[in-house]
Nucleic acid binder design. Sequence first.
DNA 1: GACCGGGATGTTAGCGCTAACAATCGTCCC
DNA 2: GGGACGATTGTTAGCGCTAACATCCCGGTC
Lengths: 343, 343
Amino acid sequence: MAARPAHTPASQTPTMADVAQLAGVSHQTVSRVLNDQPNVRAETRARILDAIRELGYRPNSAARQLVTRRSQTLGVVSFDTTLYGPASMLYGIEQAARDADYFISIVSLRAMNRGSVLEAVDRLRDQAVEGVAVIAPQTSAAGVLAQAAAGVPLVGAGCGPAEQVPMVAIDQREGAAMATRHLLDLGHRTVHHVAGPVGWLDASGRAEGWRAELERAGRPVPPPLRGDWSARSGYAAGRALAADPDVTAIFCANDHMALGLLRAFHEAGRQVPAEVSVVGFDDIPESSYFTPPLSTVRQDFSELGRRSLELLLGRLENPAPPPAEHVLITPDLIVRASARPPA
Amino acid sequence: MAARPAHTPASQTPTMADVAQLAGVSHQTVSRVLNDQPNVRAETRARILDAIRELGYRPNSAARQLVTRRSQTLGVVSFDTTLYGPASMLYGIEQAARDADYFISIVSLRAMNRGSVLEAVDRLRDQAVEGVAVIAPQTSAAGVLAQAAAGVPLVGAGCGPAEQVPMVAIDQREGAAMATRHLLDLGHRTVHHVAGPVGWLDASGRAEGWRAELERAGRPVPPPLRGDWSARSGYAAGRALAADPDVTAIFCANDHMALGLLRAFHEAGRQVPAEVSVVGFDDIPESSYFTPPLSTVRQDFSELGRRSLELLLGRLENPAPPPAEHVLITPDLIVRASARPPA
DNA sequence: GACCGGGATGTTAGCGCTAACAATCGTCCC
DNA sequence: GGGACGATTGTTAGCGCTAACATCCCGGTC
């Protein structure tokens, strides 16, 4: 903050030795103050702190890292952080990491395949991260995680079940079952489903939950339509569904597709919720302003991020607890206006 | 990859010296191979590469960083990466950084104020980042950037004008003017505006562009309504506007507010676009599936991220080019169905 | 045949920090 | 009053790497 005094070359950032010299102590005492070690006289500590401030000294993290062998950095590998889910998880992880005094280094996946996950983890390891969290909600990721986990503590966030790897996920099956049950309870004979794309764990989990709930209730299981998460694909599914007069209830695998579907029904002149009920999944911030406001299933991504990080930090302290822990978070059904009893 | 041979203690990761010993050369030659230096015999190089593979050797980044004084890491400070804009910019920056062989370390801002930006940059500097990109689209950020830039190369991404700091931004005024002009060209007498929250650069830039365009055309400037970017606030503004029969054209400062507004008009029984035209801003992926599909202004966030990083890398090579460069990216008007000539 | 030049490799000296141990000083106890 | 003890501070030795310089060996030169 203050101007650099003459005894330190201006061209060069001050080192611990400079601080020590200015404070009239040895560099080790400076180190002790910096690391909050006991047995430093209060007055000495104050003098050192003054010297640090005067020189604008910053500890050299590389030097510390070299000797302590700790980088204070965690890596996050994520698929498309532009998506609502991954972005939210990343945010939750970052917040939790900061509270635990860790830095976060990110690598986004450009494509989803074994190689790119491995490469991303490798890149992070080159940077000496102490642990890695992977946000990769695709089926193909599940298999590769165990392999990636060799050599570095790793957890999955919102990933599917991989036996060897600890992970935190939202219970997609249960969430889908809740949505389906809600529609059934309203009095609908059965529920149609607009599913997410093949290869996504969330998509298959939701489809399974939907199917299981229909079967449990002994209802017919109509063939699901397949979307790709986008509103566009929901619109296409909606056009198909709107043409079928028997359809009275639809569970969409996410809110964006529900938006497109809503639009298709509107265009087709089929009223939601008067004629047809719709439930989504995600509870994106906009969904309460759809026409009509969308009933949906809320996932608490920030809790997911937080819990993943807790799990990872636990692993860091205790590298190999017996079995890989799997934490499942139950989502919440949010009831709005898009679903009601059949006419 | 192979099992660790006996001559290296299993408990300890191999060092360059281990590789050197196995290959029968000095550690310096190993270093030369790792750094792609010339003057190493092809055969020697191959032998060393084999040894590296056999031991599963990874260079110690801290040691390298200590001596080269380069961390190969760039920091990104961002406000709420859950939002569409910041998330997209972050993604663009990360991709560009990876191509340039840099790591990205992120710090999210919990609150938007001077202190938190400074603290975030400070945290990043403690980690020895070589440069910082700040994504903070608030007015309050503009002032603090110059201060934060002291001591570390820094660029703003999507931030407002700060004289001292180089930055890349999207031309909000021009985008808003395009939207307004589009509605005027359609034949509307004037255009109402639902603005973003006070304190946001994008909000004030868009309001200015809207106002300037109306004035240029000699049209009356109705008092703008104030929202907070959320669909909820757009809905509230929509209720107010729907009650006024004179309103025929509305420019919303973002697509989410336009969504809420669309819903309010629908509820009020006022047809869009038959009775009232609406244009948004952002072109979020969903906006083409609104009811009706939304005409809007598209911002290329990934280009913004890329350009910001280019600017930052430029600064790293040449610490202080004369004036701080400011790059403005012009957005595009996307015409869909939500605006048409007045009845 | 001694000399020179340059490619290939080895040796040495830190980078800035922490851990381990050594030294010093006062105080307390019998 | 002497020695033990604990609080405080200093000294030394690396952590694993790169930069700078030293060394070696070879073919080509005159």
